[in-house]
């Protein structure tokens, strides 16, 4: 017992100050992409051509980048010779509307939740059931890490639970292989309504690297109604936490 106490003193208090304190991110972190549309010359599609997953399209001669498909690999930024496209260190990426994940010229301000009344019941307490449906264990690992002492998810009233019957919401990762479709549907139906569905990661939003494969659906949205989208491959734990905090209403 004394050894455990001594070790506890040695390791110290490790819960981060976030969200009140600063978000500590690596200098090479690739967060929200930013495009300076004025710098895009006519007819240039270097970024679109460089994207391995078709996240960039050209709308009216200007690029539109879908963060839902984006793997945040940064190949487009390397390909952009005008310096118009880059990745910022902004980690807050979650959106209530799938359209709000698309970064384009003249995009409207992001929308709030479609059904705020449904969400009101989850303020201060949110129990989530996680289903990995083809997730590669990166999104899963960065959800799991939120339950460690570093992030201490419990202090926000959020908990990952072991049964859909105990859950208010479903957190889905992975592109949803056909082999997981039934299990995902059944889990969703086992959640008592009102229930919230969160799609975490590029796979769960749009299929990720597996988009278009016959073996998978292109994300959770094909199977269950998604309320909140959290992009990334995988999203940084703080990006996921920021998304969860929007559901409990302590983050705008």
């Amino acid at each position: 017992m004394l050894k455990e106490l001594a070790e506890r003193l040695s390791q110290g208090h490790r819960t981060m100050a976030y969200p009140k304190g600063e978000a500590v991110l690596p200098d090479r972190f690739r967060g929200r992409p930013a495009i300076d549309f004025a710098k895009c010359p006519d007819g240039c599609d270097a970024c679109r051509a460089a994207c391995p997953v078709g996240a960039i399209s050209t709308v009216g001669g200007k690029p539109a980048l879908d963060m839902g498909r984006c793997l945040f690999c940064g190949d487009c930024a390397v390909a952009c010779k005008q310096g118009a496209l880059g990745f910022t260190r902004e980690h807050r990426l979650a959106a209530w509307s799938r359209d709000d994940l698309v970064i384009r010229d003249g995009a409207p301000a992001p929308q709030g939740p479609a059904d705020p009344e449904k969400l009101a019941i989850f303020r201060r307490s949110l129990k989530l059931r996680q289903v990995s449906a083809g997730g590669c264990n990166a999104c899963e690992a960065d959800i799991n890490v939120l339950t460690t002492v570093g992030f201490d998810l419990g202090r926000f009233g959020i908990q990952i639970v072991a049964s859909p019957r105990h859950a208010d919401g479903l957190a889905v990762t992975g592109p949803v292989p056909e082999n997981m479709r039934l299990a995902l549907e059944k889990t969703y139906r086992a959640l008592p309504p009102p229930r919230v569905v969160i799609a975490i990661g590029a796979c769960a939003i749009a299929g990720g690297p597996f988009a278009g494969h016959a073996e998978v659906h292109n994300g959770a949205g094909d199977i269950v109604p998604v309320d909140l989208w959290i992009p990334g491959c995988p999203p940084h734990p703080l990006t996921i936490l920021d998304g969860f905090l929007r559901v409990v209403g302590s983050q705008a």
Binding site: S132, G135, G174, P177, M180, E215, P234
Partner: peptide, 28 residues
């Protein structure tokens, strides 16, 4: 349950997604 068709999709490469397939074959 996790089958995403990676080997089938890798055939014909190398292609733009090749590295992304292997990086997510087992993400850890």
């Amino acid at each position: 349950y996790q089958h995403r068709g990676i080997e089938r999709a890798l055939a014909g490469g190398p292609a733009a997604r090749t590295m992304h397939y292997v990086e997510t074959a087992a993400g850890d």
